[in-house]
Design a binder for these strands. Structure first.
Lengths: 144, 144
DNA sequence: ACACATAGTGTAGGGTATTCACTAATGAAG
DNA sequence: CTTCATTAGTGAATACCCTACACTATGTGT
């Protein structure tokens, strides 16, 4: 069996299992996976316009509206009009949204350490390189 | 930044992008991602009872029922009573279900080759090892 | 025989996503 | 300065995934 086939299958199967393991923490924080994804995106990138979020997350603008609605209800994010374009809205984290992101980042780090315990450091570094390359390839394919 | 943190983040972000790229092929085949996942699982493992599917896919039995319902409608899978336990149902692929799996496996292989082009073979092998280990760790954590 | 556990599904409800249609605002051309 | 096409965001309708809970039918152990 080709290595590429196995790798892709492993990566594809990894995600749903991984998601399952995070379900509890998400529920505890009144979050869902897509909402968490958007939240952490804002945490890393700063305030963004809805249309930019749609592009970066590779979902429709309508889906962004729905996700942001949910985050607004729980008080993790806010909409702010774009002063340079009265049609557009910026989405930004509230203080509690930022706090929850910091908190989740810590949990994430702990979980990562635990999950990768027993894997050689060099091996881990090499894997990071490869996976990063693959993600960039994917993003390229999505643009095209 | 720790390698483990980066790797976990990359893996988490890889999945939704990856899913997006497969959306077209799935629509063309009248499938969704979770239904495809169940279908390929049967393709690789053979007929399974609903409860076993729930366990292996890490979803609730009720979710399995719903997914199988969808696959029955499109004619890709069938239910067959377990002769040794009248409560239980086996789920198995139909001929057209098997055909679609073979077809998808080919597309999958082609896509994999394309996606990993330019990545060193040894590097790829090493990554497969690492990721496989990680998936096994994950499955262990889910059982616990 | 009885209590208890297990297998699968109906019901109800929340969440993610899409498509299409619509409003408001922008921007480019005459 | 008007059209006129385009863009930003959202309402409406729809499909799907998933969960929790309740229920029926069946199996299991004492």
């Amino acid at each position: 069996m080709k290595a590429s086939t196995i790798l892709l299958r492993e990566l594809a199967e990894l995600a749903p299992l991984f998601d399952q393991l995070r379900a509890d923490g998400l529920r505890r924080r009144q979050l869902t996976l897509p909402r968490r994804r958007l939240l952490m995106f804002l945490h890393h990138e700063g305030p963004l316009r809805s249309s930019d979020l749609a592009q970066r997350l590779a979902i429709t603008p309508r889906a962004v509206t729905a996700l942001v609605d949910g985050l607004v209800v729980t008080g993790y994010a806010e909409r702010r009009p774009d002063p340079t374009d009265r049609r557009a809205m910026f989405v930004e984290l509230t203080d509690s949204g930022t706090a929850i992101c910091v908190d989740m980042q810590n949990s994430f780090d702990n979980f990562a350490s635990q999950l990768f315990a027993g894997i050689d450091t060099n091996e881990l570094d090499a894997t990071v390189q490869t996976i990063t390359t693959i993600r960039r390839n994917l993003e390229q394919l999505l643009v095209a």
